[in-house]
């Protein structure tokens, strides 16, 4: 019995598929011998239904106060400094009232207010547009409200950067482990306890999830001297909720429906 080319190709195709399928099935069974139930949160981990921040700018008095907070975050998270605005990566920084809260245009507002600095970072929105658009779930919302980045999974499409209405996201346009022309490394001093990123992925503030897991406050909170308070927004007795109920607070672009989890006390202690 002889077979023609058509039959041969059919048989070859089917047997290849069968072979691959069987291999995949066997692998699938074999891989599951480490149960997911063997993972649990640490005993000291801080828990919340929805983490949030209240920022009281009256507690920031000098340039040093801002710099200290930014440094606390950027140094422990190995945030590189490329020395140019095009490639810039930032997790927390300051901007003035006029640009942090656009849409509040007012010809007669005092210059002092317009130029008043505000700390800005990821809003960890309750309805995050970045999470909605991510095609790989590389950015996702945890059950405690933190909008997280899985750097292992990010393909670097930057859809999330287009979607974020707060400019909170930065992209690794080059290798953060590299050095500039004069041999200066982009990360001055590596924190050996935290990873860096690789070129081609998006990054942002992660609410210090790695510190919460150990029972520590976020780094910016710790360095802010009371200027940044964190807590559970869903808990009416939490410090953040107390502050929100006592003070007039605003959020960035609430009209977009993203429901930011950072509240800013305007005026602060002076007129509270």
């Amino acid at each position: 019995m002889s077979i023609d080319r058509r039959q041969f190709l059919k048989i070859a195709g089917v047997s290849t598929l069968l072979g691959l399928g069987t291999a995949a099935a066997v692998n699938g069974i074999r891989r599951d011998d480490v149960e997911a139930s063997q993972m649990e949160p640490g005993p000291d981990a801080l828990k919340a239904k929805r983490w949030g921040f209240v920022v009281d700018m009256s507690k920031f008095k000098t340039e040093e106060d801002y710099a200290r907070v930014v440094h606390a975050c950027h140094s422990i998270h190995n945030v590189p400094d490329y020395g140019n605005p095009k490639d810039e990566i930032k997790w927390i920084w300051k901007d003035d009232f006029e640009h942090t809260f656009p849409g509040q245009e007012d010809t007669y507002m005092a210059a002092e207010m317009k130029e008043k600095p505000f700390m800005v970072f990821c809003n960890h929105c309750a309805q995050p547009p970045c999470v909605r658009v991510c095609p790989t779930k590389a950015t996702f919302k945890r059950t405690d409200g933190i909008v997280m980045m899985d750097m292992h999974r990010c393909i670097g499409c930057r859809f999330c950067m287009a979607a974020c209405p707060y400019g909170s996201r930065s992209f690794n346009f080059r290798d953060p482990r590299g050095k500039d022309e004069s041999g200066r490394p982009f990360i001055k001093e590596l924190n050996p306890e935290f990873p860096t990123r690789t070129k081609g992925v998006v990054e942002k503030c992660t609410f210090c999830y790695e510190r919460l897991a150990k029972g520590l406050k976020p780094a910016c909170v710790e360095a802010s001297g009371g200027g940044i308070v964190f807590g559970d927004l869903e808990d009416p007795n939490s410090e953040v909720r107390q502050l929100i109920s006592k003070h007039y607070t605003i959020r960035r672009k609430p009209e977009l429906g993203t429901q930011p989890s950072i509240y800013y006390i305007v005026g602060g202690n002076e007129n509270a």
């Binding site: 095609p135 790989t136 393909i155 081609g200």
Partner: peptide, 16 residues
């Protein structure tokens, strides 16, 4: 345009 072109299959591995 992808920053991590080697991971492009993640779009199919983790359909969203």
């Amino acid at each position: 345009d992808l920053g991590q072109p080697m991971r492009v299959m993640n779009v199919m591995l983790h359909p969203t």
